[in-house]
């Protein structure tokens, strides 16, 4: 698959403070990515660099093989939907959507109208009279209806209530099936959207912790619980991410392959095996308990 975004050794400093430190990754065409990281990990800064709203201190960024700086052709292909939606004061929702229509050449008016209905949005209201959640709704409508080849949601959907978020994920998936494009979800809340993600980039303290297929992560991250003496044998060739002990019972989050034979053995030894949700994996990887993660390589485990 073609690479649409390529970041090589990106460094960004603000007044001598390194916010991004040697970030490198590739984003391939027509995939759904999750850019995951805790608050302050540098997600928004990275996305702003990709969309030419900020400059990098060192490194290179390419979007469709070109430097995005002042590159109208490239920038028009990207729709960057932010959490804090910006809109000129006094503008009505309909006017904000008009702006989206005028900026994006692939704008789909039918879809915009449908989404307005689905999300019960009053387009005659002034934008700043809307609740935070409804403002987020306007932003995601722009993101969806723009049909931009690269659509980035920077925590834009987090202001929505749970049913609307579900609706949003459903619509994204359906639209993606019919009109494949590159979508990046930047978030620190992973559980809800994890089923959508095809690839995951985890950013921690300005560095890329891992870049991996989401399926591979799901297949290799486990939670194993059982008696301490019986469990030890199973942990030898696996990376232990987290450990909890309650009496003689130990619960361990591990990353590694577990064969069918090994699974049968575990059942015999009364060891419980569950797959580890992406959210938990993210928490263990980005918390300080997991040791040195900077060289974490999922494929190699």
């Amino acid at each position: 698959m073609n690479s649409v975004i390529s970041c090589q050794n990106i460094v960004k400093e603000f007044d001598g403070i390194r916010v991004l430190d040697g970030v490198s990754f590739e984003v391939t065409e027509n995939s759904i990515y999750g850019l995951l990281g805790r608050n302050g990990a540098g997600k928004t800064t990275l996305l702003k660099i990709i969309t030419d709203q900020m400059f990098l201190t060192e490194g290179t960024v390419e979007v469709y093989g070109e430097n995005p700086h002042e590159n109208e052709r490239v920038l028009k292909e990207v729709c960057f939907v932010r959490e804090n939606v910006f809109c000129p004061k006094g503008f009505k929702v309909s006017e904000v959507l008009n702006l989206g229509r005028s900026f994006y050449s692939n704008w789909n008016e039918t879809m915009a109208k449908q989404l307005i209905g689905y999300f019960e949005l009053d387009i005659n209201k002034k934008f700043y009279q809307l609740s935070k959640g409804m403002q987020s709704t306007v932003a995601i409508i722009i993101g969806l209806a723009s049909r931009a080849p690269i659509t980035i949601y920077d925590e834009a959907y987090l202001g929505l209530d749970a049913p609307k978020r579900e609706l949003f994920y459903e619509i994204v998936l359906k639209d993606y099936d019919e009109h494949p494009r590159t979508i990046i979800f930047s978030s620190h809340l992973i559980d809800e959207c994890s089923s959508l993600l095809e690839k995951v980039i985890i950013l921690n303290k300005g560095k890329v912790l891992l870049t991996e297929d989401a399926d591979l992560l799901r297949e290799r991250a486990f939670l194993i619980a059982g008696r301490k003496d019986k469990l030890a044998a199973y942990l030898q060739d696996k990376r232990v991410l987290h450990k909890e002990e309650i009496g003689k019972v130990v619960s361990v989050a591990v990353f590694g392959q577990i064969s069918l034979e090994e699974q049968r053995k575990m059942t015999r030894d009364e060891i419980e095996l569950q797959s580890l949700p992406l959210q938990k994996l993210f928490i263990y990887l980005t918390s300080n308990q997991g040791g040195d993660y900077h060289e974490f390589n999922a494929a190699a485990v």
């Binding site: 002042e70 590159n71 109208e72 028009k76 729709c79 960057f80 910006f86 989206g100 900026f103």
Partner: peptide
């Protein structure tokens, strides 16, 4: 005040 944030909609600085 009003225009610079619209650069996230793909407006270049020159424009």
């Amino acid at each position: 005040k009003m225009l610079s944030p619209f650069m996230s909609f793909g407006i270049t600085r020159k424009e």
